[in-house]
């Protein structure tokens, strides 16, 4: 019965519903996005084929699309550079900390550090806007009470504070995810390696440097790349908390892609911008993956 055309047909029926959804809601938008990037589309109905014009605009200084793209990309790049090292290192540090605790309390602390991950972006932003508020925010009042003199810090209004604030709340919000993956990686390091090192008289620091870190190398690469991709996709924090300010300092590319699509009504240009961003993300993550996995072999 298996292998016959009838069997193949009934087997296909299991995959069919998903295939239809996948084709309609993912594959088709993907393909039509590529087509759209070669068109002028006002988001309402009129489409006109304009070849590479959208891409040319992105790379031609002086055009509106170029300004929005470069400004957004620079904000996104800054966020990636500021946030990724912290998200990875703090994630690893928390994982090491949790693993070093006695098994009885591990679960409790793991839950605490992971909990903010469950919260929606809008609630996260609402909370931290109240913490970072210049006049009546938790942090500035706390600094007042601790005896800090002088005017309040504009956590969400002034550079460089605004980046510190955005990176800090991002760590709070998402670092638990990285921690969970690191904990899993740490648990898979064979216990015998540690036993052997202990017999050789290696102290905790040596065990970390010579056994733990080399053993979780590949999982660290995965965490690093996932974090880079997530940070390239940054949107909620600046969109909700700073509106891209001060000036255009924290305006990230996703904000400008939405602005071009829904504000400027230029669907084609927005699609081209998104595709270029996608390509940049893929190139960056591939290069980093090659660099890190190449050195190991």
């Amino acid at each position: 019965m298996r292998g016959s055309w009838r069997s193949k047909l009934t087997s296909s029926l299991f995959v069919l519903p998903y295939f239809v959804c996948f084709a309609l809601f993912l594959l088709y938008p993907l393909a039509s996005g590529i087509v759209l990037s070669f068109q002028d589309y006002d988001m309402l109905g009129s489409r006109e084929f304009i070849g590479l014009e959208n891409y040319k605009n992105i790379f031609t200084p002086g055009t509106l699309i170029h300004d929005l793209f470069v400004r957004g990309l620079s904000g996104t790049f800054k966020f990636v550079i500021y946030s990724v090292p912290f998200l990875v290192i703090v994630g690893l540090a928390l994982a090491l900390l949790v693993n070093a605790l006695s098994t009885r309390v591990q679960g409790f602390y793991r839950t605490i550090f992971f909990m903010p991950y469950a919260i929606s972006a809008t609630v996260m932003a609402t909370i931290w806007m109240r913490v970072f508020d210049t006049d009546t925010g938790f942090l500035n009042i706390l600094l007042d009470k601790m005896g800090k003199a002088g005017p309040h810090i504009g956590w969400l209004n002034d550079t460089p504070w605004v980046w510190i604030a955005l990176v800090f709340c991002t760590i709070w919000w998402t670092v638990g995810f990285n921690m969970i993956i690191f904990i899993n990686g740490l648990n898979e390091v064979p216990e015998e390696l540690y036993e052997a090192a202990r017999l050789d008289g290696a102290n905790a620091w040596h065990r970390l440097i010579h056994i733990t870190l080399p053993s979780i190398r590949s999982i660290s690469t995965v965490v690093l790349i996932m974090t880079i991709i997530a940070s390239f996709n940054v949107f909620a924090q600046p969109f909700l908390m700073t509106r891209g300010g001060p000036g255009y300092e924290t305006t990230v590319l996703l904000m400008n892609i939405f602005a071009v699509a829904y504000g400027q009504h230029q669907g084609g240009a927005a699609s081209a911008m998104a595709i270029v961003l996608g390509l940049i993300m893929m190139v960056v993550s591939t290069v980093i993956y090659r660099l890190l996995s190449g050195r190991r072999g």
């Binding site: 809601f25 039509s32 998104a274």
Partner: peptide, 14 residues
């Protein structure tokens, strides 16, 4: 591998 932003706008248009 493809970031969601690539199909966000075309999906909206769909």
């Amino acid at each position: 591998m493809i970031p969601g932003i690539v199909w966000f706008v075309p999906q909206y248009i769909l």
